[in-house]
Structures are given as structure tokens and as C-alpha cells.
Design a protein around this nucleic acid. Structure first.
Lengths: 259, 259
DNA sequence: AGAAAGCCATCGGTCATACCATTAGTCCTA
DNA sequence: TAGGACTAATGGTATGACCGATGGCTTTCT
């Protein structure tokens, strides 16, 4: 009679490390497999923004899975900003063209939920904004400058009305970043300011007077850009950002005491 | 008998633009509501990394929804990197502590799927890396410098063996970024190089000889940092990055022809 | 007594079916 | 012809069931 172990004699070689005959069986979620397939098609360009995926019920047949699985896959794709779901007749899952808005949101979300301090974010902001100033000076269009001036004017009015918010400052900085005409940089700025607006709101109350100085500096930056003067723009921006950094630093040390 | 319209008499004021009495009825997905509640608790700190959410079946009771809805919510939270699901007994949804790794992955993913060109990414890289040089010069520890020198040495050996890869260059730049001792900057760098490694792989073949020059420049940057010489480090780095930019630019124009 | 083997409760993964809500297109009526 | 009602397509949700994986508990053998 053959002992059971002999049936696997070829595999059980004592003292001999078994080579890669078998791979560990990976338990992959079916919904993840569906996601990977669709994502691969998007990356390869076989699926382009605006394209419509089959209806959920049709995808059940295509992928040979239940509707629950298809729907979970769609939730993942939707959360990743790859598809957009529309309900009703002629609805369905449409491949999205990821907007700066969405990229920025995700970035902001990641920063909010990760152990990154406001101080670190501010420092990264300084790096980013100081670096993009030369690009803006070089590329800003008259439309960019008009928008920036308008934002400064709105801030001035809001300050007079005592309705100035941190979001208005963020809007200025985001518009400034978009004036660099580089989508990647613009997305990063969106991420930073989406984060800043919520995480540094307290700093606004700490120093409401700062708004006046800050707004004046904003305007000074815009005019330096309009004059295509890199040095002046850099100088003003540096002062502006480092003043913000100090404010964050003090707000932080304060919260340490009060928390 | 009261006409139906009279029941809303107070609301139907002809000629008077209706103020914000009614809000548009938004059909929000129930799974999204669940996501929002959990996410809010994470943001407020009531849920911390490592905490375990109730089991799916328990959450059905808590939120008064079906298991399908709970599971879709979990898929969204998982895709956002907020929770991690473990199967089996004592499994469930655990709040994750977002690692640099994850943040970087998501960032890279966002860039891959968004209409951001390699050229734009490279430009953003230049802004980031030039900006972080002063921080690195100020903060780099001997451990940082040792690691960077080791990476340079590995690259030298790999070049001799003809096993040099773009990933090795990326590793150097990521380690350089982490030497700034700023989590936010480190995450951004991870995002950039995770993206670069895949999107610019072709550039490697275009100019394999470049590796020698690039590695020598890497080493020069390290030594300038070790000497705490901001100007020298900035100068070398600027040359290095702009050479890379040119390479990307030519690779891009080439791919335009070959694609 | 200690260790190995097996059993079991828990919990996520998947499926099938049913019904509701929303939406766009169509058709019918005034 | 214009407006409203009907209809089909499609996503959203609920229910109930079963399977697979996992870790702890119990049993059994040495």
C-alpha cells in the first residue's frame, strides 16, 4: 500500500528547499478584478473620457459576476474618480475626464487624513509657491492678471465689510497657481488650499488684522508679476508666506496648550 | 372646502421671488451618507487609526440600511484609503494610518489618470526639488548623507553592470526628498517618482549614457549638501533637473511621432 | 502536561431576486 | 402643435442565502 505522503513524493524532498513549483493562492476580490480590467482599459486609452460602460446588468454577463460585484467595482472606480454614475434612462457609468477639482480634492483628503502637520503643509506650500513664481511671471496672461486683481479687490471689499474669510485668500493663491499654466502644479495647489482652508481656519481668528496686510501683499505680488519682475514678486511672496508660516507656528503652539 | 393650493398659501406669493424656503431635493446615495458619517468621525479624531468598525451586519443595524449599502460604503472608504478590510474571524474594517506609501500611490494614480503630461510633471518636480534643496542642506543628518552616498555607489556599480534602471534614480530623488524632514514634501516626491518611473521609462532607453552623467551629478549634489553649501547644491541640481527636462521633452516629441 | 489536530463561531465575499426611484424618449390627447 | 401621461431603461436598495477564510477553542494523542 502506498503511504499518502508518497503521492507527493516529488514535492517532499527533505532538506531541499522547494523551488517555485506552486504559487500561493491569492484571494483576490472579484470586484477588484473588474476594477483592474476597466482601469487597464482606461490607462491604455481603449476607454476614453465620455465613453459609457455597459449597464450594470449587462456587465454582469460580460464579467460573469453578480450585480453586487459589478456595483462594488463601480463604487471603487467612482471613488477613484475614474467613472461618474448617472441614474435614470440612458444613464450608466461614464468615464470621466479627471478635473483639477477632483485631483485636488483627493489630494486634500489624503493630507487631511495623514499625519501631516499644518506646519509641514505650510512649508511645502512655501516651496511650491516660491518655485512657481518665475513660471507665473513668464506665462501669466492678461486674463490671469485681471482675475488676480479682481480677487484682490473682492478681498478689499470683504475686509471693509468684515466678511473676509480664509477661503478668499485660498482662492487667490489657487488662481495664482493656475497662472503658471501647468496642470500638475495647479492640482497640487488645489490640494494644499483645500486643506489649508479647513485646517488653518483658527489662524484667521487669531489675527484678523493680518488680512489687511496679506491682501496688500497679494496685490503687490500681482503688480510685480504684471511688471514681469521676478525678483520683486519673489521678494514680496517670500515675506508673505513666511509671515503666514509664523502665524501657523504660533497657532500650533497655542493649540498645543489649549488642547 | 379648502383648495389644495391654499394649503401652501403662505408659500405661493405671486411676484415675490421665493427666498431660500426650499432647498433642491438632493438624492444622496445612502452608502454615501454612511461614508460621510464615518469619514467625519475619522477627521474629528473620534475614530483613530487601528480602531475597528463594527461588523458589516452590526453596521446594518446601526445605520438602519441593508448590508449591500454598508458594503458599498466600505468599498468607497477602502478606495479612499481610510479603512482596510481584513477577512475571517476577528476581521472587519480597520481605520488605517495613511502611510507615505499610500499617499504617494494615490498621488501617482491621480496623475496617471489625469490629463497631466510628463512635461508638466517634470516641471512641477523641478519646482519641488529646487525648493527643497535649502531645507535638505539645513536639515540633512549624517544618516541621510550616508544613505544618499550609498545610493550613488549602488548606481555606479549598476552602471558598470549595465543593470542601471530609472527606478534607481527615482530612489535617490525620493531619499533626497525625505532628507528635508517634511512629511508633506516627502509624500509629494513619492507621488512624482512613482509616476515618473512608469511614464518616463522610455526615456531611459533613449539615452542610456545619461545615467553616468546623472549619477555623477547626484553625487555632486550630496557632497554640496554635506558641505552645507546651498548655492553649489542648487546649481548642480538645477543643471541635473533641466537636463532631465530636455530629455523628457525630446522623448515626448518622439513619442508624438511614433504613437 | 504539552503539543498537535480538528471543530466551530465569526465575518467578509458573492449570488439571486425583487422592488423602488429617476430619467429620457415616445405617444397620445386637447 | 404643445403639453402631459405613459413606458422602458437603469441605477439604488432590501432580503435571504450560502461559501470561504480566519482565529480561537476543544479534543485527542503522545
Amino acid at each position: 500500500m502506498v503511504a499518502p505522503s508518497d503521492l507527493f513524493g516529488a514535492l517532499s524532498v527533505p532538506g531541499d528547499p522547494p523551488p517555485d513549483m506552486f504559487e500561493p493562492v491569492t484571494t483576490v476580490r472579484m470586484s477588484q478584478v473588474v476594477v483592474d480590467q476597466i482601469r487597464a482599459h482606461v490607462r491604455s486609452g481603449r476607454l476614453s473620457p465620455g465613453d459609457k460602460l455597459p449597464s450594470e446588468r449587462d456587465m454582469c454577463d460580460v464579467f460573469a459576476v453578480s450585480r453586487v460585484t459589478v456595483r462594488e467595482a463601480l463604487r471603487i472606480l467612482e471613488a477613484n474618480g475614474i467613472v461618474e454614475i448617472r441614474i435614470g434612462a440612458q444613464g450608466g457609468a461614464f468615464i470621466t475626464s479627471p478635473s483639477r477639482q477632483r485631483v485636488g480634492e483627493s489630494l486634500a483628503d489624503l493630507m487631511l487624513l495623514s499625519p501631516i502637520t499644518a506646519l509641514e503643509v505650510t512649508e511645502a506650500r512655501i516651496v511650491l509657491e516660491m518655485g512657481l513664481i518665475p513660471l507665473v511671471v513668464e506665462r501669466a496672461t492678461s486674463e490671469d492678471l485681471d482675475d488676480l486683481r479682481r480677487l484682490c479687490e473682492q478681498a478689499r471689499v470683504a475686509l471693509a465689510n468684515d466678511t473676509y474669510t480664509m477661503a478668499m485668500s485660498g482662492a487667490f493663491h489657487m488662481r495664482l497657481a493656475s497662472s503658471a499654466h501647468n496642470t500638475a502644479i495647479e492640482s497640487l495647489a488645489h490640494g494644499f488650499y483645500g486643506n489649508m482652508v479647513s485646517s488653518l481656519r483658527q489662524a484667521q481668528n487669531v489675527a484678523p488684522v493680518m488680512g489687511h496686510v496679506g491682501t496688500q501683499e497679494h496685490l503687490a505680488v500681482v503688480e510685480a508679476i504684471a511688471a514681469r519682475n521676478v525678483e520683486a514678486a519673489t521678494s514680496v511672496m517670500s515675506r508673505h508666506l513666511h509671515r503666514t508660516e509664523e502665524r501657523v507656528r504660533s497657532a500650533h503652539s497655542e493649540s498645543v496648550h489649549t488642547d
